[in-house]
Design a protein around this nucleic acid. Structure first.
Lengths: 153, 153
DNA sequence: AGTAGATGGTTACATTGGTAACCATCTACT
DNA sequence: AGTAGATGGTTACCAATGTAACCATCTACT
């Protein structure tokens, strides 16, 4: 005999719904108050962390496909938050970084986001926080290596 | 001094990206092979578990808004997987349950999904599986009760 | 050098998902 | 009973996301 499915205890559902709630709660900060979309937010964080990158690399670091990156970049550029300069190694690509306004905006958002994160994790002990990330890492790894489910014969 | 943000260690990002990978991996089963969408899948599972429900309740149990439920239901109905009968207590609503074909289809999918879940969780010990759900529960609860972040004055 | 195929990035098109307006009915109060 | 507002559910409309085609350039090989 095998147990039967229940959404409430089903990891895909729980994880999805948690991710959405987290994302929504966080986005109140940068969407409502700063008019930044989620993909734009990811680009901002990444450029703030790495300094200067080309689109391709931003895509890798944020797990977004090139179309999404392109749109996010063009949105941010339109608002003067980015700076581009040609990439001399490859003239198809360009190198992107935060403009002064972009960096300034980011510095206003970042502390609020950190405060929000701290508030979210507040009920978890240090150990729990660590194991949360360990578990996520393990599942991520598993997904990358797990064989596809076989259809029955 | 406070730490600065990095996507790779940022819970919203990690959780989102994990949820997407999980969802994608799982959906190979019911999307590719059975042509069922994600919302439809949730409705199926819920009706399989609860027997007979009205749309409103399905929405609550699956965390989907009424539009999404309506579309999922109409998709499943079009394929003859559901049965509706009028709700005598409220003539606006109807009661939904799986049709015979629906139940049969579900019974073909369920064991595969359970096998997939087991494969996913395989690298986690029993304790780890438990703490994973405990952590998710805690975060869920926290999100429901957490105060909004205050804008700086 | 020249050509075939791969790659960075953008644009155009189709699909999906969300928001808002809507209709029918229900509830509660006069 | 009659009316005002709430609610179940569908439809219509608009924003976001993914897929596919595209252009320019690069790489590698002859």
């Amino acid at each position: 005999m095998s147990k039967s499915l229940s959404l409430a205890g089903f990891l895909p559902y729980r994880c999805n719904s948690l991710a959405q709630k987290i994302s929504f709660s966080l986005s109140r900060i940068y969407v409502d108050r700063f008019g930044i979309t989620v993909p734009e937010w990811r680009v901002l964080v990444t450029l703030a962390e790495y300094g200067e990158l080309q689109s391709r690399r931003i895509g890798e670091l944020t797990s977004m496909d090139k179309v999404r990156v392109s749109r996010a970049v063009s949105g941010l550029s339109a608002r003067g938050l980015l700076q581009r300069r040609p990439c001399d190694r490859d003239s198809r690509a360009s190198l992107l970084c935060l403009s002064d306004t972009g960096a300034e905006l980011y510095q206003r958002i970042e502390p609020e986001v950190l405060a929000w994160e701290e508030a979210l994790l507040q009920p978890l002990s240090t150990t729990e926080r660590e194991s949360l990330f360990v578990l996520i890492d393990k599942l991520d790894l598993r997904l990358a290596t797990m064989p596809a489910v076989e259809p029955p014969p």
